[in-house]
Design a protein around this nucleic acid. Structure first.
Length: 827
DNA sequence: CTCTCCCT
């Protein structure tokens, strides 16, 4: 089907050619369908600056790479592999005549690593750059460096569908931007009057029914994942038995996916419920109506745990437009958006670049090989985040792939295996002990989509079994196992080992997994059969009824981190003794707060997991003080033997510290004491083994050590324990640690004859008098004794002399003799 | 309600 009018992309070709005559980097913005991927490489092929050099064009997907190469070859009237060829994993079609190579993103990184000068390449084209894949960002950063340092003549063309070319240009030294208009049919977008609430499947089924009534043609529905798709499908099949209903997502068998892509053979109307797979990767024939739920699932990498988690989130504007565009391939279309125009205004413009939320271990190894010690030295569009780089560095150091930022020989060896460094490590380790064939199968299984359903449980051994059965039967087919075998074959070739179909020992699989994911070795929790603890510390759980339940040790490969507790997806039983070489022995001195004792243990650990623990008789003295002080801090100072007297001593010193700041009294508040335990208490802890031993310490004497000798006398002078009153008795003063006014509680009659309120702190702080009745009931609280005698005493006297007639209640308290006793008998 | 998608 040829189109009557010329593709609009042709209009910008003269400008583009002029740009490239002068500049090294150009940006082209053109929406999908503009034809840029096919047209531009062919147009630029004969520019003089290319001088017979090659064009390398990047495509994010294998299928697209092959299709683009095929279309260009068709235009030239050639076969693929002549002027235009492609390189993708497992498949290369190029010849000595080839001038345009369409490659997938990982391939370019490999080309650059092998030949940083990119000899023979004059132009690198980045197609679909708006997708901002990790590999594309890395390749661009590397190409920019090549351009600056080694190859000033290297030209870069960045093609993007979204309209943020201006921002891109600023980051690329004001590279020229050329914009082309799209050429697609108009699409009528319909928003909901308001946002709906409730489960997505029911809402979606409602909108599908409405669309089937209002519009003609086949319908494509975007939902976040397989669960929503299956539920919606169930609802729709009841309501619309006459409609041809299809699910479309990556885990579905190939045949089911194929059926969803083609028109219904019986000519019925078709409704396809799809994930993001239908956004860019697969094109469905005959769609006129798109229904967009507005949600998608994304994997978020958590650098703290090194794990990722799936989250259901609102889609971004560019994805919404991409989805809507799927209705306009054949003619004018309709798109129902399951959100309001108000929400539309709040959508983010595009997803975060992958580099901001991905596992960066592979990237960091590539950079180390490139010779970059500090990733910040490269010129990034979006720099890789620090936290993820730190986690990646740890992973690579544990694998022995980098040391102090430099790639090691081991790291270089890992790069020979085009896969995640963890899996490359698995392959190499296994090969060295003669398990190469098994490693090839396991690494392939871990990299590809799971060939078994969830009902099978999570044991990787079952997958190895399935793969080996399938292979020994020499079955054909297009299924998941075939894809896995293609990968396993690549590993066997690299390792130079023959295929093997005997069943391995169960724990051999576990051991291989532990090599790839050492920090995910997991130990069964006591008294549980589903819950485990990972060697890195986190809790994880098997699915109910998983055949692996109750296994004492697991090597976990795939899991999601969840919010509190992770879920295990792929694992295998492990014989923990196989990891003996990685065990560490450590003596642990600990305060057991349950029994209140100091315990010394010798522990054998694998990372955070305790393999074996034995009690030690001898307690190492050097760490003991620290552990005991820590115990006091967590349990509190009350473990020590406090008496009323020691508490008062503390209050007296504290009062002076607050009243006399110029004298620098030590901080003996509870907090102050806790902060300095080691220095004042440390020397007295030799004999302490259990909680009761703290009580036996001579606290008053130990505390005295806190005061320098010259303060000892000052304490007695300024904050005396007691004060003498007119009766001749010494009465205890009550001090307070917060420095508030000390209290003197004394019988009223003992104070006869005294005019002024007694004071402490060299007369500066008057005490608060609690004047008591003969029965020690408080009669008056005052800091002004003179005023009491004058104003209050006459009233008080009237009442008290009736109640306590045997006691003296003189009219004139000033001249009366102070006493504790009853009236003297009158002669 | 246990898992979107892609790549060496």
């Amino acid at each position: 089907m040829s189109l009557p009018e010329p593709l609009p992309i042709f209009d910008l070709i003269p400008d583009l050619k002029a740009d490239f005559a002068a500049a090294g980097t150009v940006i082209v913005e053109a929406p999908p369908g503009a034809g840029k991927s096919t047209v531009l490489p062919l147009e630029l092929l004969h520019e003089s600056w290319l001088e017979g050099q090659k064009i390398v064009m990047l495509q994010p997907r294998r299928l697209a790479a092959k299709a683009v190469a095929a279309r260009m070859s068709e235009v030239l009237g050639e076969k693929v592999g002549e002027t235009v060829g492609y390189r993708v994993r497992f498949d290369t079609q190029v010849s000595s005549k080839t001038r345009i190579e369409v490659v997938t993103e990982g391939i370019l990184t490999r080309i650059l690593q092998n030949d940083p000068e990119l000899s023979g390449v004059g132009l690198v084209i980045f197609d679909e750059f708006h997708e901002r894949s990790l590999q594309a960002d890395l390749s661009l950063a590397l190409c920019r460096e090549v351009q600056q340092v080694l190859r000033e003549d290297l030209r870069l063309l960045i093609m993007s569908a979204t309209l943020d070319g201006a921002a891109l240009s600023r980051l690329l030294d004001d590279a020229p931007v050329r914009t082309s208009l799209g050429r697609s049919y108009p699409i009528e977008v319909r928003y909901l009057p308001r946002d709906l609430e409730g489960p997505l499947p029911a809402l979606t089924a409602g909108v599908v029914s409405r669309a089937l009534e209002e519009e003609a043609g086949d319908v494509l529905v975007f939902l976040p994942g397989s669960w929503e798709i299956q539920r919606t499908l169930a609802l729709l099949s009841e309501r619309h038995p006459q409609i041809s209903l299809h699910a479309l997502y990556g885990e579905l068998p190939q045949a089911a996916q194929q059926a969803a892509l083609l028109p219904d053979p019986a000519g019925r109307r078709k409704v396809v419920l799809a994930t993001t797979i239908a956004e860019t990767s697969l094109t469905i024939v005959g769609i006129r109506v798109v229904i967009d739920s507005g949600y998608t699932r994304i994997a978020r990498f958590d650098p703290r745990s090194g794990l990722s988690r799936l989250e259901t989130v609102r889609i971004t504007l560019d994805a919404a437009n991409q989805r809507a565009g799927r209705a306009g391939r054949l003619g004018p279309g309709v798109c129902y958006r399951m959100w309001s125009s108000n929400t539309q205004n709040q959508l983010l413009s595009s997803r975060l670049p992958e580099i901001q939320e991905a596992d960066l271990a592979p990237l960091l190894l590539d950079l180390a090989q490139w010779g970059v010690k500090n990733p910040a030295d490269l010129c990034w569009l979006t720099p890789p985040p620090q936290a993820a780089l730190k986690q990646a560095k740890e992973v690579l150091e544990n694998l022995g792939a980098v040391a102090e930022g430099n790639i090691t020989p081991r790291g270089k060896a890992l790069l020979k295996y085009p896969t995640h460094p963890r899996l490359a490590h698995l392959l190499l380790e296994a090969e060295s002990v003669g398990l190469g064939a098994l490693a090839a199968d396991v690494a392939a299984l871990l990299e590809e989509r799971d060939p078994l359903t969830r009902e099978a449980g999570s044991d990787v051994f079952l997958r190895v079994e399935a793969l080996r059965h399938w292979r020994s039967r020499k079955s054909g087919g297009e299924g998941a196992l075939k894809r896995i075998e293609r990968l396993a074959l690549q590993w066997r070739r690299l390792l130079k080992v023959p295929e093997e179909n005997r069943m391995p020992r169960h724990e051999q699989v576990g051991l291989l997994l532990a090599w790839a994911y050492p920090e995910r070795v997991a130990k069964l929790r006591e008294g549980d059969h589903l819950r485990y603890r990972l060697a890195q510390g986190k809790g994880v759980k098997l699915k109910d009824h998983d055949p692996l339940q109750g296994e004492p040790w697991l090597a976990v490969a795939h899991l999601d981190s969840g919010t509190d507790e992770g879920r295990i997806h792929l694992a295998s039983p492990l014989n923990i003794q196989d990891l003996t070489a990685d065990f560490r022995t450590q003596d642990v001195l600990q305060w057991d707060s349950r029994t209140g004792t100091l315990v010394a243990r010798r522990e054998i650990r694998y990372l955070e997991l305790v393999i074996e623990s034995t009690r030690l008789q001898d307690i190492p003295e050097d760490q003991k003080v620290q552990v005991l002080c820590q115990a006091l801090r967590s349990e509190g100072l009350h473990l020590l033997h406090w008496t009323e007297d020691t508490r008062q001593w503390q209050a007296r010193v504290e009062s002076l510290r607050l009243w006399r700041p110029e004298e620098e009294w030590p901080d003996v508040s509870d907090q102050g004491l806790l902060d300095t335990l080691e220095s004042w208490l440390g020397g007295f802890l030799q004999g302490v083994r259990k909680r009761e031993d703290f009580q036996k310490l001579d606290l008053p004497n130990i505390l005295l050590g806190l005061l320098p000798w010259e303060k000892l006398q000052l304490l007695e002078d300024f904050a005396p324990k007691s004060l003498e009153v007119p009766s001749g008795f010494k009465i205890k003063v009550q001090y307070f640690a917060d420095g508030s006014t000390p209290v003197l509680a004394v019988k009223l009659q003992e104070m006869f004859g005294l005019l002024d309120t007694p004071a402490v702190n060299a007369g500066r702080n008057r005490v608060l008098l609690h004047l008591l009745s003969p029965a020690r009931r408080p009669v008056q609280v005052t800091q002004d004794l003179r005023s009491f005698w004058q104003n209050t005493y006459p009233e008080v006297r009237k009442e008290l002399r009736i109640r306590y007639p045997k006691h003296p209640w003189p009219e004139d308290p000033w001249t009366a003799t102070a006493t504790r006793s009853v009236k003297r008998r009158e002669h």
